[in-house]
Design a protein around this nucleic acid. Sequence first.
DNA 1: GGTGAAAGCACCGAGTT
DNA 2: AACTCGGTGCTTTCACC
Lengths: 159, 159
Amino acid sequence: MGKIKLDDTDHKILNMLIENTRTPFTDIAKKLLISAGTVHVRVKKMEEAGIITGSSLSLDYKKLGYMFIAYVGIYLKKTSQTQFVINRIGEIPNVTVASITTGKYNVFCKLRAKNTDHAKGIIFKIDDIEGVQRTETMISLEESINDKKRLMHSIFDEM
Amino acid sequence: MGKIKLDDTDHKILNMLIENTRTPFTDIAKKLLISAGTVHVRVKKMEEAGIITGSSLSLDYKKLGYMFIAYVGIYLKKTSQTQFVINRIGEIPNVTVASITTGKYNVFCKLRAKNTDHAKGIIFKIDDIEGVQRTETMISLEESINDKKRLMHSIFDEM
DNA sequence: GGTGAAAGCACCGAGTT
DNA sequence: AACTCGGTGCTTTCACC
């Protein structure tokens, strides 16, 4: 987990792997005019440095019957209960992200559900957590995801 | 892109691939007591059915110098401008997700930035989009991500 | 830090049950 | 549908630059 300085070749490797984790190292090597062994060594280094933390599948949740996305803003009774509430929320598998925030809400989270009824049940679970004063739900009608690739390009441009 | 009915074996394959996209099919085959060829055929079917849409790297953005996460709630002047605003937001690479929502805000998005100054610039860009009336920013002090695996388990349990 | 070759595996399609 | 098997190609290591 030591420090590491990424160069342009590393950026290019990351950009290719972000688009498709299973891109063969031989393909990357050909494109970057280096050997497959070098690609392998560089990827391994980035894994060891903790920059690459893993890889995961992109799934179509709608096809799995999960049509519903909602954001829930949470007001707490006391901010000292934040960690407790975050832990309880973490136990609900349908909550995909939870953040401690400053601003309007104390805690903010996102959930996935099959339908409105299912979502209602999950939101009620959040409401029932000790320390939660009130929640505000925003239903996502449509989500557009700005792909990782563009973010990465901008990160590397600014480095 | 035809219909497909996933069975328990498919769920187990997905659960293993979600943890690590590069898990060799031979390993999956051993664990599930089926042949590697079968794993291959099933994964291919799920790809063709559009359930698996791709794969991507998990990165430590903090190590890349992006320490800052914020959520921005947007009020529009008229909802008829929603798509226009979503498109403009999509052009900002630092915005990682944007949603059209019902509830408190018309549009809701999440952004990644290097620091507060950098974030300020991005938020000002959003404020400047034609049709945006006002924004409310929530700074994420700490983000806990409920891993995909747990969500998937719950999806499969409920099927 | 990079290379290139070689050994070890994985992938994937064809043919079979 | 799932299996086996073989050709092809990918990964990974290592001696050398």
